[in-house]
């Protein structure tokens, strides 16, 4: 993966598949550390599946027995002196939280890339799921919440081209202190 945003897109699709109603994706940069958190309220994983989920030969796909999504995110974090942690719960309070950290000064830290493009792609692909996107750096914070959007939009679908453009522009505009 050339940019972290592609890993985000890939791993967030696991949350979609876990039938989450809300997926929160945050990227927070402070003191030279970037922390990515993908938190969902999906069905969660069994302890057994969780214990081997970063093994490339563990997957939910049916076309072949290889799954590179989480292993690639783990690799990206570890090559930049960070780490990957995953918590998951089934039953009451079910859901999964994936957290990855990166030392942004490290030579092998992949760039964040097109975060807005990933947000648009996720909303376009699952317009009936709610997403919270949060992107915070020392320069400020940008947020897009589909729940807030829905309140204003009424029955206008989130995957309408005009709405997707709005999401893209919202996340692409400069941070407050960057102007």
């Amino acid at each position: 993966m050339k940019e972290l945003s592609l890993n985000i897109l890939d791993v967030a699709k696991n949350s979609v598949k876990a039938q989450a109603a809300l997926i929160e994706i945050s990227v927070v940069e402070e003191n030279g550390v970037r922390t990515l958190t993908i938190k969902d309220d999906g069905c969660g994983m069994s302890p057994d599946f969780l214990s081997r989920v970063t093994d490339p030969f563990t997957t939910t796909r049916t076309t072949r027995p290889v799954g590179m999504g989480l292993p690639l995110l783990k690799l990206a974090a570890e090559q930049a002196e960070g780490e990957l942690s995953i918590e998951s719960k089934q039953g009451e309070g079910h859901g999964t939280t994936v957290r990855a950290t990166f030392n942004t000064d490290h030579l092998d830290c992949v760039p964040l890339g097109d975060f807005a493009g990933t947000a648009v792609t996720l909303i376009q692909g699952s317009p009936d799921i709610d997403f919270d996107f949060i992107w915070r750096t020392p320069e400020g914070e940008k947020r897009v919440s589909t729940r807030e959007m829905r309140e204003v939009l009424g029955d206008v679908p989130l995957d309408s081209p005009e709405v997707l453009s709005w999401v893209s522009e919202s996340l692409n505009e400069p941070f407050e202190n960057e102007k």
Binding site: M1, L6, L9, D10, R61, G67, M68, L72, G117, T121
Partner: peptide, 15 residues
């Protein structure tokens, strides 16, 4: 848009 597609450049194709 699985891992393979995304890594190969599917996101700009979709958009």
């Amino acid at each position: 848009m699985a891992t393979c597609g995304i890594a190969a450049g599917a996101r700009p194709v979709l958009s």
